[in-house]
């Protein structure tokens, strides 16, 4: 019997077991914990739990600090992404590597590093304390700083990718119409990469929301001031398991929502 080679390629059930089994195991490994979390969640007491002041405080603080951190990342990260994507300079590769360091750096190490620089005795920290009377560690501003440190790479990488994908000739066309570099940036470049910026900002916000290590190291764990959701989960785990589960379910819901938002963004992008 001869086998038609095309028919063989088209046969849908051609996945080797050696790949299929680990693939399904991997899928189960990633989804089961989340399913478990949902199964164990105290759905009946959920509304009452959510209204507890500690939970609300942590929720509010997380939302505010993550949003502020995203704002800070946009303010500093957009120009940085533009620089990396549009300007050729010596050491650009090195700068790009430096920007991505917080991605792979253990957040605790980031927190320690932030303490050393922005702490009371740090280079920048002592200067801030002397001139402005501002101390960042163990304050809400410190939370924002810690979050921005770990989530900045997400924004920079996403926006730089969008900038590289955008046709730079639109910027040239704008220049021939009399637009200076700043006008080109605000009137042409930014609108063209808006979907990329939105995606980067959402990723950045989600990462900031989940930030734990750098926050607890640099900003501590003070309810209402620096105790964000992940910190509250960790603390509740030792005293009140049910509260920890409730907080975790909220974070899970936010993550899934973010993912859904990004899908919309990515499919709607031109």
């Amino acid at each position: 019997m001869t086998v038609d080679p095309i028919a063989r390629v088209r046969r849908p059930r051609g996945v080797p077991l050696a790949l299929l089994v680990p693939a399904l195991l991997g899928l189960a490994f990633m989804t089961l914990p989340m399913v478990g979390l949902l199964l164990r969640a105290p759905w009946r007491t959920m509304p009452r739990r959510l209204a507890e002041p500690e939970v609300l405080d942590a929720l509010w603080l997380s939302a505010v600090t993550a949003t502020a951190a995203t704002g800070l990342c946009l303010l500093l990260g957009l120009p940085l992404a533009w620089l990396l994507a549009r300007v050729e300079f010596r050491g650009r590769g090195l700068v790009r590597a430096l920007v991505t360091v917080p991605l792979v750096l253990p957040p605790v190490v980031g927190g320690v590093a932030l303490l050393l620089v922005f702490g009371r005795n740090g280079i920048v920290g002592s200067l801030l304390a002397e001139t402005l009377g501002v101390t960042l560690p163990f304050s809400t501003a410190g939370v924002v700083l810690a979050m921005a440190f770990v989530s900045m790479p997400f924004l920079v990488i996403a926006v730089e990718g969008a900038l590289r994908g955008a046709d730079a000739r639109y910027e040239e066309a704008a220049a021939t119409l009399g637009a200076g570099r700043w006008t080109v940036f605000t009137h042409v470049t930014l609108p063209l990469v808006a979907p990329g910026i939105a995606a980067g900002a959402v990723l950045c916000w989600a990462r900031a929301l989940g930030e734990f290590g750098a926050t607890i190291t640099f900003a501590g764990n003070f309810p209402g001031r620096t105790q964000t959701m992940p910190l509250a989960v960790y603390l509740a785990l030792e005293t009140d398991l049910e509260a920890a589960i409730v907080l975790s379910v909220i974070l899970l819901a936010v993550s899934v929502t973010v993912l859904a938002c990004l899908r919309e963004r990515w499919t709607a992008a031109p």
Partner: peptide, 14 residues
């Protein structure tokens, strides 16, 4: 380019 007073029609219009 923005100070040249030269108009350009690009190949794919842009």
């Amino acid at each position: 380019p923005e100070h040249r007073g030269i108009g350009v029609v690009f190949q794919d219009y842009l």
